[in-house]
């Protein structure tokens, strides 16, 4: 097992996750989340489960993102303060 890429991927995953959480622009958060999913797919392949990686790439990075964006288009783009 190659440790370097794994740790690199995990580190980026953590960074992306934090970025997605703190972003107040939901569209930005969605795009970051899409990238997160893509990296997750890579991580799954690394963990010897290409099937799950495949699904994650197609569903998590693809369809889910589109559905999120559609939702944002129908509601509001910016997270509101307080109330």
């Amino acid at each position: 097992m190659i440790w370097g890429p794994d740790i690199f991927i995990l580190a980026i995953l953590v960074v992306l996750a934090i970025a997605a959480v703190i972003s107040r622009d939901l569209l930005v958060a969605t795009v970051i989340f899409s990238g997160y999913s893509l990296l997750m797919a890579v991580a799954y392949v690394q963990l010897n489960s290409p099937d799950v990686g495949f699904t994650e790439a197609a569903v998590g990075a693809g369809v889910t993102t589109v559905l999120f964006i559609l939702t944002i288009a129908r509601t509001a783009r910016m997270e509101e303060d307080g109330s």
Binding site: P50, F54, T55, A58, V59, G62, V66
Partner: peptide, 14 residues
């Protein structure tokens, strides 16, 4: 090989 009905369905849907 990796893949199958579910993934294929999602890809075509996309």
């Amino acid at each position: 090989s990796p893949g199958g009905g579910f993934q294929a369905g999602v890809i075509i849907a996309s």
